[in-house]
Structures are given as C-alpha cells and as structure tokens.
Write a protein that binds this DNA or RNA. Structure first.
Lengths: 247, 247
DNA sequence: ACAATAGTGTCTATTAGACAATATGCG
DNA sequence: CGCATATTGTCTAATAGACACTATTGT
C-alpha cells in the first residue's frame, strides 16, 4: 500500500470523537482596573453561568484564527488591529471538563487597549467586561484558565514590552506605570520606574511631543513615547514581591 | 429542554472530525550532548521519516497522562519517576499539518537524567536518542515543535531549577554547570557559576558528602549537592549572549 | 612533578531601590 | 498660592563578570 492508497482508505471516524474549541482570555484595562471579557452562556450546559468567550474550531481554520474570530465576534475588534496581542496560553483537556463529550480547548491570551463595549454575538450571547477581582465562579474549568492567564500576563510584563499593548499608540511613562500597577496590583515608585523604563533598550522611543495638558490635578506636561522595537526587556522589570513566590 | 435532556439528545458526530494527539519533546544529556528522542515512522504518512514520539489521546485519558504514556512506551521510563519533568509546550493545529485528517497535537516537553536506550514500542517502531545538532528533517511540523521545545528549555534553565532534572539525585556543581553549557551551547566561567548557584536560595542544598574520586584528569573531590526546594531562581541565571536576541 | 580542577578572594561596572530635589502647571 | 506630578540627581546595597589564587588529586 503506498501513501496515496493509504490516505484514500483512511477512515477518520475510526477514532473516538473529540471536539476542539478555543477559549480566549481577553484582558483590557478600564477605569484603572484589569478586566476580562466574559460571556453569559445562553444554552446548556451551565446555562446562565459566566464563561470565557470561545467556540468550536471550524474545519479549515487555524487555531489562532479561530481565537481571533471568537474575540472579534464578541467585541468587533478587527483581527488586523495592530495593537492587539494574541498568544497561545495552554490547552485544557481533562476528560470530564465538558459533560457533552470529550472537548479539548486551546486557550488564548489577548491584550488590548481599552476596547469598546462588547456587541451581542450572532447567537445573542451577553458579553461584558468584568474586573478580574469581581469574577465569581465560571463555567467548566474556565476559572483555572483565567487564573493561568493572569499568571502569564503578570510575568510577561516582567520580561516583554507587552504593557505597551494596553495603552494607546502614544503614551506617557505614567500611563505605562499605571498598567504595571494595575496588572501587578502593586504601587511602584514613580521616579525609579521612569528611569528604568528609559534605560531598557528598545522598550519605548520618544515621539518628541508632550501631552496637551498637565494632569487633572496639576503637574507638568509629560513627554510622549511610543512602543520600541524590543521583543524582550533586558534588563527585565521584576515584580517587587517576588521572593515570597519563589518557593 | 433541561440540561439532562439536552445532553441525551446531543450528537457528538455533528461536529467535523478532529483527532487529538500528543507529541513529546524528550530531552536528555548523553555524552555531553543534548539529545532528543525520535522515532522512525513505521507507516504512512511520511513512512520512514524521523518524528517525535506521540500518538492519539485515548478516550478517558488526560493529556499529560497520554504524554507520559507515550514516553513510557518508547523508553520504559515509569511515570512515577521523580526525576522526570513533564510540562505542556504548546498546541499545533494548522489545518494541513497532517494529510490524513484534521489533527491537533498537544506537545509536551520532558526533561530527564540520562535515560536508558529506547525499547521498541508495541508497534515495533524504532526509537533513538539523537543529538539535537544532528537532527535533520522531521515529519509533519515536528521540526517546528522541536525548535520551540529547545527555546523553552534554554530559557527555563534561566529562571527555574530544571537543570537539576538532567542530573542524578546527587550531583556536583561542575555537573550542573555541564548541563547549562550543553543546553545553552556556551562556555561558562567555572568560578563565577559556582558562587552564583550557591547564592540562589533553594536552588541546591549540600549533602555533606564529596565525590569518591577527583576528576579523571586530576583535581580535588567535589562536594555533592541535591536539588533544593525553590521553584523559581531568584536571582536568575541569565544566558551570557542575551543582548543579541533581544530584538 | 605536572596538569587539571574545586572552591574562594578581589576588584570593577552595572543595577535596584530609597530618598531628595527641581520644575511645571492645574485649581 | 498651594499642591500634585514629571523628571532628574544622589547615595547605598546587591549583583554580574573578569581575573587571580590556593588547595587537592589523578596521571
């Protein structure tokens, strides 16, 4: 039997049925809070519970394409949005994680600057941005996925410039610091943070411009920066409270 | 329709057929070379080509269980082996990555101390440890998966104590240094490495014993250590040539 | 004796972080 | 004017890395 004959005689149905889905942990910052996109399940199982947006991977669709599509269906964010970061988070496939059948879910992590309010999906699901601190119980194992995504986001800020994907095209150092403080849930020293960011090659580059006005409560106009070309931060910006988590 | 009725009426066959497999990138160090476990494909597609060990996930099997099983089938390494590290690497699901059907593969990364020579699997596949530098073309997208696994391994040595999973229960600092030099493919300064390893809390702990004999070409007997309880290295051991890879 | 290696000491440049100082602009 | 904020300066402790030195052991 040559390879062509083998493929012709191959029966995909001989294997146990498995469904592959993508779920998206989409983070954005709204009103100084880290928020995640959740949808309320419109049908069984777990009808009415909050869950991560996601769905089945279509027949000729790549995994990352499916994740971008699911996110776009809920938010209207174009896949081509340059400021949208999408990366694979992990795959969850415990045999009993979905009561319907064997479902293996590939989770993706998305970062974006303040996104528009969600639009209702084609299947009339309700979607909402929810501060991560207020998230209660989620359907399936989505609580675990969200926790893993949060861990990933927190550590990615340390050694990659992904914080810039949470702010606009042009931003001030203070806005960037607010991203770190929000995601890490820690106060950072303004002066030291400022100098450190500027000392990392390729993290940010100056636009030459300054903000139109000073802060709402006074202060000088801040210089504006845009994201640089570094893909890794060296040296890294480490979380202050790291020693405790080491063991 | 309540949830029980919904599940009873649910037809898993309504979704496009997808197969889920696991593939394992298993690294060990043999004769001062980083080697990866490869199998020669016994049947189509890509008959005769080298590939990563792997196979279909069974019906009631967890993903990590499947990876451990596939590894055990090729090497005889018991899953319970305390010194075996297994972590999820990523999931590869391009629609055309397997000509038979839609196959989504969850890749796992395994580290272990010098493992025994592979045993022939139940399906009489040939398996062999191959130095990563000598790996030629692999079947499917396994070349990409191997490259990703290598990247992951190299950076994991920086901030986790995983190097200890490549050596025996008790080891010398020089043996640990050899792991770093092999995986990073860089010469490290013996004295500075020594001091730095000992300065990281929880990385290694002394056993109080020393080696039976000095080095084969002379030198004093080295103190023996075992892995400590740290799960993250702080401060990290950074690769010397990092600046170049930043952009 | 000789060479190789383990482990330690020393010095310098860099970095993290605490704290202070200055200048700007809103109310 | 008074206060909050942006930005820069200064100082200290910790760290990375280069280099040197001593002690030990196999050949």
């Amino acid at each position: 039997m040559n390879e062509a004959e083998f493929l012709a005689s191959y029966d995909p149905r001989a294997y146990p049925p498995v469904a592959v889905t993508v779920d998206v942990v989409a983070f954005t910052i709204r009103q100084d809070a880290l928020t995640v996109l959740l949808v309320r399940r419109a049908g069984p199982p777990s009808e009415g519970m909050w869950a991560l947006p996601g769905g089945f991977v279509r027949e000729w669709e790549d995994l990352s394409t499916a994740a971008a599509r699911e996110l776009a269906e809920e938010t209207g964010v174009a896949t081509a949005n340059r400021r949208l970061h999408l990366e694979q988070l992990g795959t969850y496939g415990a045999p009993d994680r979905d009561p319907r059948m064997r479902v293996v879910s590939v989770a993706y992590l998305a970062f974006a600057p303040d996104l528009p309010d969600p639009v209702s999906g084609s299947d009339a699901r309700v979607a909402a941005w929810t501060p991560v601190g207020e998230v209660d119980r989620l359907a399936f194992d989505h609580g675990t996925i969200l926790a893993d995504g949060l861990d990933r986001a927190r550590s990615k800020l340390e050694y990659t410039p992904l914080a810039t994907t949470f702010v606009g095209e042009e931003f001030t150092i203070a806005e960037l610091r607010a991203v770190y403080e929000t995601v890490w849930d820690e106060q950072l020293h303004a002066g030291n943070f400022h100098r450190k960011v500027l000392s990392v090659p390729g993290f940010v580059e100056s636009t030459g411009a300054v903000t139109e006005r000073g802060g709402s409560r006074g202060g000088p106009r801040a210089k504006l920066y845009r994201a640089g070309d570094a893909r890794l931060l060296h040296p890294a910006l480490l979380m202050p409270s790291k020693e405790e988590t080491v063991r």
